[in-house]
Design a protein around this nucleic acid. Structure first.
Lengths: 186, 186
DNA sequence: CTCAAAATAGAGTGTATACTCAAATTCCAG
DNA sequence: CTGGAATTTGAGTATACACTCTATTTTGAG
């Protein structure tokens, strides 16, 4: 059972290679061969460490999401501003992973473990946005908070989507503008 | 040069088959074999009529977009409400084509003719939304109209995105709510 | 050192894909 | 009718993919 250092290092190299490839070549370009070539590993080693290619991709996406979570452990409540900034950081800091994230989500929640994981993460995020909005606007009914949370998140997703369509689009600026002027103050 | 009726009918069957498959099986499930089987045609016939599989998919998506355009010829100006309703009709009326549309857009504008076509269509749509907003709010500076157009479209795209993640999500209702309460009246 | 477990190599499997091409068939204008 | 063009066939090509399997090498605890 005890793992060797070699295996741990190889696993890290595979994850790094997968992350880089998702960024450079997208989901389609991130083939098993490409991952193995970049990691300097043969297919057999890959499958000694991962159950499938999907597992490695999922690891990268989950790591990226966790890396920008303001309160990953869920111990402290987060403000709406923190959540929005976290979303902006996620999209601008790791645009290619964000692209993959959107792509997987759009592929549908039916597509195996990836889609299901995406859906669950999305639901948690809506709940956190909704909580933050409710905390900052106690006069709102819970259903109203949730509706606003969904609209805020939709706008953020949509702006990210536009940014991917046009890299010249100023995503961060538009995102802060949309949230601050149109949706919170009313 | 003169085309025969047989070829024209075959072309229509292929387009229909492609449209149906995009709806039922998504982009990945819409393989050449699946298209040909459903259209009752062999691969050779397909390639006698289309340059590539991509060409047939693009035709379907373009047709779908055109079908819900309130003023396809561009002769009459459209109201913001018309444009929003057209977007809602597009997404709810042909959800699977809309999914393909979002998928292609997210794949990036670099991906050959599909991506480029998507980007151009998106830019035209932003311009039309911006014109409508400017016409209905003459006090706004053009740059402000465009900013609002981008935010409205982002919200619509994002809500469509959420609907695809969760089919139980009431896209049309949320879309009208978001546009009417948060973005236009202020 | 030893040696069992962990890690690796790398050829190989099976499947699916988009697309081609020469030959046969069907169409339809004149 | 007829003949050249349009259409259709269907086997075939080339390629890419995720994944498997067995033999071999490497590791590191005792």
């Amino acid at each position: 059972m005890a793992r060797y250092q070699a295996g741990i290092r190889t696993e890290a190299r595979i994850i790094d290679a997968t992350r880089e490839l998702l960024g450079e070549a997208g989901l389609d370009g991130t083939t098993l061969k490409a991952i193995c070539d970049r990691a300097g590993v043969r297919a057999g080693s890959f499958y000694n460490l991962f159950d499938s290619k999907e597992a490695a991709v999922l690891r990268v996406v989950k790591d990226a999401i966790r890396a920008v979570d303001p309160h990953p452990s869920g111990d402290a409540p987060d403000s709406l501003e923190e959540l929005v900034e976290a979303y902006i950081s996620f999209v601008t800091g790791q645009p290619d992973v964000a692209r993959v994230y959107l792509k997987i989500a759009i592929s549908g929640a039916t597509n195996g473990s990836l889609g299901g994981s995406m859906k669950r993460h999305h639901e948690r995020r809506v709940a956190r946005f909704s909580d933050a909005i409710g905390r900052e606007n106690p006069e709102l009914a819970p259903s109203e908070s949730e509706a606003r949370a969904e609209i805020v998140l939709a706008t953020l997703s949509g702006l990210a989507f536009m940014w991917m369509l046009d890299p010249g689009f100023d995503f961060a600026h538009r995102a802060r503008l949309a949230v601050n002027t149109s949706l919170i103050t009313h």
